[in-house]
Design a protein around this nucleic acid. Structure first.
Length: 427
DNA sequence: GGCAAGATAAACAACA
DNA sequence: CTGTTGTTTATCTTGC
């Protein structure tokens, strides 16, 4: 081990400190978007401004949420190459003024992005077609999106590699022989840690504009812009669905008992690996009967999405604003029944689930490369991986359910308008 | 002040 | 030989 001399003074000036305070304060300001949040928050006046709708007030949130849903497209191929936040920069600045929305990444030209390296890597990998990227591509993605790093000291690349190596969220995937395209391995996000990463991302002042993940602020900002887009169910991936659900819940668009308090911290693989809250260890205790599973490995009924939908559905069902009262607690990885503590996460099922829909991407890195290593996976992990896959599927279903609700809302809307018209005629 | 998380720096080995 | 990649260790900063 060589000498560690710490950061040089000039580098200190570039990293935390005054610049962070000054730069990020602006970023956070534009990220907080209270107006946008208000805009996104359902208001009784929007639908229920008239007393005639009192009996339907309970569906106001649905009205808003379905508007929200129907006005978005995200994920997959339809995700705009340019961030919606980019969309509003420059000439497209919304009427609320520059203070409302600024492009955080534009800002990041001079100040550090408010994302940890873990999140940057996560966004980069998730943005890739195959959800696998070599280090070099990760560099490129970060550089492309955050020009700050173009002028930043080269140490950030070291930090990226350091994160990849150290962070349990990332798995190295050896390139297959036939697909050799440069040296080094591909890196992927451990599916089991995706919820953590998403949650961490969501808690950032703004989310990845291009990762397909939507933070509340991101959603709010787009909401504020009234960007009319078409949401296609097929465009929703599980990650986005979860973000959407949680976002809706948090903003009150979908009123639910509690947001999902997923632990966001990413703990070090080795130093703190024991303490990492593993998503598969989510323990759920519900007063209601549904989705009472604890460990997906043990109970495949577990579904974060179905719970979210269930909670939302319980609200939407007017009568039973249910008391679904989840308590989430996170168990240390070591407490898993059947967890052998090994680092192997791959299984054929998982790999298939993750990549089979992923054609060879434009990056030239075949999904097969991911398959190769994943096939080395340990059979003991099969169940857990299968559970993750199921969760993924259920998240998709959850998104679909919301879309379904959107359709219901459309019908309700026409009914309401018809009723209003008739009432006015009577008057 | 302690702790956790993250950032940064550096050394080193392996490899193309 | 050089540059890149991956690992590891150590220190520092920041926030709670």
């Amino acid at each position: 081990m060589g000498p560690v001399i710490g950061m040089t003074p000039d580098k200190r000036a570039e990293t935390p400190g005054a610049e962070k305070i000054a730069g990020l304060s602006q970023i956070y300001k534009m990220g907080s978007l209270p107006e946008a949040v208000d805009a996104a928050r359902p208001k009784a006046t929007l639908v229920g401004s008239e007393s005639t709708d009192d009996e339907l007030t309970n569906l106001n949130w649905l009205h808003e949420s379905t508007n929200l849903l129907t006005n978005f497209s995200f994920g997959g191929e339809d995700l705009p190459v340019v961030s919606p936040l980019y969309d509003i920069e420059g000439d497209d600045m919304p009427s609320c003024g520059p203070s409302c929305y600024q492009n955080p990444e534009k800002k990041s030209t001079t100040s550090k992005p408010p994302y940890s390296f873990s999140l940057l890597i996560y966004m980069a990998i998730e943005h890739s077609p195959n959800k696998c990227l070599p280090v070099k591509e990760i560099y490129s993605w970060i550089l492309d999106r955050f020009p700050y790093f173009a002028t930043a000291p080269t140490g950030w690349k070291n930090s990226v590699r350091h994160n990849l190596s150290l962070n349990k969220c990332f798995q190295k995937v050896e390139r297959s022989h036939g697909k050799v395209n440069g040296k080094g391995s591909l890196w992927r996000v451990d599916p089991e840690y995706k919820p953590n990463l998403m949650q961490a991302l969501k808690k950032q002042p703004f989310s990845s504009p291009q990762s397909g993940s939507l933070s509340p602020h991101y959603l709010s900002s787009v909401l504020k812009q009234n960007q009319v887009r078409t949401l296609k169910e097929s465009d929703i991936d599980a990650a986005t669905a979860m973000i959407l659900l949680n976002t809706s819940i948090e903003q009150g668009i979908l009123e639910c008992e509690k947001p999902l308090p997923l632990k966001t911290s990413l703990q070090k693989k080795r130093n703190y690996g024991h303490a990492f809250s593993h998503p598969s260890a989510v323990r759920l205790q519900e007063s209601d009967s549904l989705a009472t599973s604890i460990d997906p490995k043990e109970d495949h009924n577990y579904s974060a999405s179905s719970m979210a939908v269930q909670r939302c559905a319980s609200r939407s069902s007017v009568s039973s604003l249910s008391s679904v009262d989840e308590v989430y607690e996170f168990l240390p990885k070591s407490s898993h029944a059947g967890s052998d503590g090994s680092e192997g996460f791959h299984s054929e099922e998982d790999t298939d689930g993750d990549y089979e829909d992923d054609p060879l991407g434009d990056s030239g890195y075949a999904a097969q490369a991911c398959v190769d290593t994943s096939q080395k996976g340990q059979p003991g992990k099969k169940m857990r991986k299968q559970s993750c896959q199921e969760i993924d599927e259920e998240l998709k279903e959850a998104a679909g359910s919301l879309l379904h609700l959107a359709g219901i809302r459309t019908c309700l809307g026409s009914l309401i308008s018809t009723a209003k018209t008739q009432k006015q005629r009577k008057k």
